[in-house]
Design a protein around this nucleic acid. Sequence first.
DNA 1: CTGAAAGCGCTTACAG
DNA 2: CTGAAAGCGCTTACAG
Lengths: 358, 358
Amino acid sequence: MPDRGRVRRVTLRDIADQVGVTPSAVSMALADHPRIGADTRKAIQKAARELGYVPSSAARALRNQRAGTIALIVPTTATHVFGHSYFMHVLEGASSVANERDVQLLVSTNPDNEHGLAAYERVMRSHSADGAILTSAAIDDPTVERLIDSGLPVVMIGNFPYLSSAVTVGVDDRRASGAITDHLITAHGRTRLLHISGPLDHQTGIDRRDGFLDAVTRHGLEEDALIVEGDFGEESGVTAVQGLGDRKTAIDGVVAANDDMAFGVLRTLGVAGVAVPGDVSIAGFDDFGLARVTSPSLTTVRVPAQRLARLATERLFAIMAGVDGWQHHEESVQLVLRQSCGCQAPGMTTDEPAILNV
Amino acid sequence: MPDRGRVRRVTLRDIADQVGVTPSAVSMALADHPRIGADTRKAIQKAARELGYVPSSAARALRNQRAGTIALIVPTTATHVFGHSYFMHVLEGASSVANERDVQLLVSTNPDNEHGLAAYERVMRSHSADGAILTSAAIDDPTVERLIDSGLPVVMIGNFPYLSSAVTVGVDDRRASGAITDHLITAHGRTRLLHISGPLDHQTGIDRRDGFLDAVTRHGLEEDALIVEGDFGEESGVTAVQGLGDRKTAIDGVVAANDDMAFGVLRTLGVAGVAVPGDVSIAGFDDFGLARVTSPSLTTVRVPAQRLARLATERLFAIMAGVDGWQHHEESVQLVLRQSCGCQAPGMTTDEPAILNV
DNA sequence: CTGAAAGCGCTTACAG
DNA sequence: CTGAAAGCGCTTACAG
C-alpha cells in the first residue's frame, strides 16, 4: 500500500528541536518579538524557511479565537433568483478585499433551511468565519434576523428597512427605477408602460416596482400602466409578454426589474414581430454583462455590485476590528442608455453608450 | 462602550456543567457513542439543543487533523484569462458537492506569486483545506507541480499531460476543436479558415489550436488557414480581425478558442459590413451563456464545466477518503449548432439549436 | 464499564 | 531576562 500522501506537517516543535530552543521561543522569533535576540531569531527564521514551516490555521484559530476567514453567504433560493453574474461580481469584490487583508474567503450557500440551523448560521456559530457578507436575502427569512441579533459581525448587501440594526450597503432602487421609467417617458414619449417586477418578497422587487409607480404617477400615466410579478428569471419576462396576449401592442414601453427578464421580453417581442425599440422601448436593471451583448443592446440601470461588495467587505473588517463607521451606505447608480430604449442607433456598434448618473 | 457583540461561545464544558457530566461524556453523547446510556444521552442532547451548541470548527480541525474544508483554487492570471462564467460553473459544481458532504468551500485566488509561497500553497500547507480543486493553471506554473508533488489531495480541471501523476478531469479539446472545424468545412463549405487561439501557455490553447490544424490538414486546406494567438478576451477577437486589414474577405470561416473571442469577431465583422453567417461562419467554445444571447447566436462547443467540477470534487473526496479511482477522466462535449455558422435561421428565434455529440 | 488525562499546535501570561 | 506551563475546545486512548 503506497503512502497516500499524508504529509507530516512541520510544527514549531520541529524548528525548536533543530535550533535547540523551545517552541515558545520559535513562536516569538517568527513574530519578531523583541525578547528574542537577533542571532537566535535569524537562526530560527532560517530553519523555518528551510523546513517550509507554515503555521497551522486550526491551532492559530483555536488559540487566537479568530478563524482568519470571512464568509460570503448566499441563501440558495436566491441563487436562482439572482443570476450568476451578480454573484460573480460580489465574489470578486469580496475576495479582493479579503485577499488584501490576508484572510480566507468561505463561500456558503444554504442547502436546507428546514433541517435545523440554516447552513450559514452553523458557519458563523462554529466560528468557521469571523464575519460574514450576506447578500440577497428574502424579506421573510427569519434566520437573517437571528444572525443579526446574535451580534456576530455581518454586513448585508441590499436594503433592509425592517432590520434597523443591520449594517447594509445598497443602492436606491426606488429612485433608480423611477429615473429609468422617467427616461422612457420623457426621452422616448412612451405612455403605456409595463413593469415586470422582481419577486415581491425581496426588498429589491418592491423598491423597483414602487419607483416605477412613482414615475408613471408623476406623469399621470398610471391608468395605462401594467405590473406583472416576475422572478428575475429570463422566462418570467417571456411569460409576462405572452400573458398580454393580443394586447401586446397596447404597451409601448417595458421596465423590467432586471436584464434577464428584459432579455426575455426582447426575445418574445422579436418573435412576435414587434420592433424594439421601434414599437416598444425596453429597459432593465443590472448591466452585469448580458445587456451589452444582446441585439438590440439593453438600456439598463447599472448596479455597482462589485463596488457594493468591496464596501461591504471593508466595512465588515472595520466592524471586526471594533472601528465605528456608517451603518447604512448608499451607492449611486447610472443609467446606461443603449439601443433598446431608442437612444443608440441599432445594428452592431462599437460606440459607447451614454451614461447618466442618477 | 457598548458590547460589540463578542458572543460567548457555548462549549462542551457548558453542557457538561449543566447536565452534571464530563465534557468527554458530552462529546460521546453527541456522537451517539454507545457507551453513554440512553437517558444521559438524551439529557445531554437536550441541553445541547437548548444552549444552541455548535462545535468549534477550529478545535475539531486541530484535534481531528482535518479542516472540514476544501479549496477551490484559481490562479489570478487565469481569472483574467477565463471569464467569469467559466468560474461560476465550476463554483456551482464544486460547492454543490461540498454541500452534500457538509464540507465548507474556500475560494482562493492567487494575488502574488512572487512574494514567497503562492497563496494556494499556503492554504494547503496551513491545512486550511483538506484538499483542493485546481483550475486553469498555466503550463509553466511551477507551484502547481510543487503542490502535486507535496502529496496533498488535489484534483485538476483540464489536461496536464506533462504532470503524469496529477489527477485530472477534462475534455478532449483537440478532438472537439477538430470536430467544430470539420463542421464549418463539411456542412458549410468553408475553405479559408482563421483560428484565434487561446494563450499558448495553457494546454487548452494548444489543444484547440492543434485540433483546428488537424482538421484543415485533413481537408487539404492548410495553405489558406491562418492562426492568430489570442488571450480568451473579447478584445483579442476584435484585434485578430482588425489585424487582417483588407484581407477580411480572404477568410470565410473563424474558429475561436472561446465564445468571448468569437463575439469580438462577430462585432467587428458586423461593423465592417461583413455578413455572418452569410459571408463568414463563426464558431466558438464554451457555451457558458454568451453564445445563446448574441445575434446571430454563436455556434460553439459546449464545455460541461459544472459537470467537470462535480466530477473533480467527487474524486477529490474519494482521494481524501483513501479510495482508489480513475486518475484521468475525460468528459465528452457537444457541438451546439446555432446561427453563426449558418445552421439555424437568423433572427430572434426560440428554437432549440441542434446538438451533436462528439 | 467509567472517569479523566493526554494531546492536536499554537501564543502569551506567569513563575523563577 | 528567560523557561516552560497553561489553555483555546475538542476526541479518544488509557488507567482504574
